[in-house]
C-alpha cells in the first residue's frame, strides 16, 4: 500500500515515519510537501510530529492553512485514512478534522519520555491488531498535549467511542499519576466520528523496532495495512 508523509516546514518526525513504513514494513512511501495539493494516490496520509511553522501562534494553527491540508480534508471526508502523530494531532484539531483543542501541559514542561497507554477499541482501522485493553509502551515528546474539549463535545466523543488510547499505568489503570500532561479523561488518542482519522500524542513510529526499546507502536501501522488489505 502507499503512504504519503506530509512535510511542513518544521516537521521533524517525517523521516522516522518514512523509515518505519518503508524499511520496517516494506511499503511504498512518498513525501508530500505542504505546498502540494495532490496526495498522489496515497491510501493513507501521515501528518508527522515536529514543530510546524515553529509552533507560532498556536501549535498547528498555521499548518492547517497549507495547500496540502485542503486535500487532506477532502481525502478524509471521502473516507481516506489519516493519522496525525503529536504535532500532526495538533494540526488535525486546528483544522477541525478532530474535535477539541490542545493546551500546554499542566506542568508547563516539555515532556519527553515513555508512557503507557491503553487501547480502548480494537474495531478501528488503527487498532485492529491490538487486544482490547492492551497496554502499549510508547514515547511522548510534547509541550502541548493537554487535550481539552467542552462538555457537549466530550459527551459526543464518549457516546461515539472516539477515544482509542488513554494514558494509564503499567497495569492498564487510568490514574491521575499516570496522566503525563493533564489531558481530559486521560485522552492520548482519538478518532473522528467516521473512524477514518486518528490523532495521537504518543509516537508509534519511534517504537516500531525492538532495538529502539519498544515495538508496541508497530501495531498501529500494521492495523492500517490490515484495514486497507481488507477493503
Amino acid at each position: 500500500m502507499k503512504f504519503g508523509v506530509v512535510v511542513f516546514p518544521g516537521s521533524n518526525c517525517d523521516q522516522d515515519c518514512v523509515h518505519v513504513l518503508r524499511d520496517v514494513l516494506e511499503q511504498e512511501v512518498v513525501l508530500l510537501w505542504h505546498q502540494e495539493s495532490s496526495l498522489r494516490g496515497c491510501d493513507c496520509v501521515v501528518l508527522p510530529g515536529g514543530f510546524s511553522y515553529g509552533d507560532y501562534l498556536r501549535t498547528g494553527a498555521i499548518a492547517k492553512l497549507s495547500p496540502v491540508m485542503k486535500s487532506v480534508a477532502a481525502f478524509a471526508k471521502d473516507g481516506g485514512l489519516v493519522i496525525g502523530i503529536c504535532n500532526g494531532f495538533q494540526i488535525l484539531l486546528e483544522a477541525g478534522l478532530l474535535p477539541g483543542a490542545m493546551l500546554r501541559n499542566t506542568s508547563l514542561r516539555f515532556i519527553c519520555r515513555y508512557v503507557t497507554v491503553r487501547v480502548e477499541r480494537t474495531d478501528t482501522p488503527f487498532t485492529n491488531r491490538f487486544q482490547p485493553g492492551q497496554v502499549l509502551r510508547l514515547p511522548i515528546a510534547h509541550n502541548e498535549g493537554n487535550y481539552t474539549v467542552d462538555a457537549a463535545g466530550l459527551k459526543r466523543i464518549a457516546e461515539r467511542g472516539q477515544v482509542l488510547f488513554r494514558y494509564c499505568d503499567a497495569d492498564g489503570q487510568v490514574t491521575d499519576a499516570a496522566n503525563p500532561n493533564g489531558s481530559l479523561e486521560a485522552i492520548a488518542g482519538l478518532c473522528n466520528e467516521a473512524g477514518n482519522v486518528l490523532g495521537m500524542m504518543p509516537h508509534p513510529e519511534r517504537a516500531s523496532e525492538p532495538s529502539l526499546g519498544s515495538a508496541d507502536g508497530r501495531g498501529v501501522f500494521e492495523s492500517i495495512l490490515q484495514s486497507v488489505a481488507c477493503r
Binding site: 501562534l57 498556536r58 494553527a61 492553512l65 486546528e94 477539541g100 483543542a101 493546551l103 481539552t148 474539549v149 467542552d150
Partner: peptide, 8 residues
Amino acid sequence: KLLANPIV
C-alpha cells in the same frame, strides 16, 4: 479564522 481558537 486564525488569531484565536474559539474552543479554548
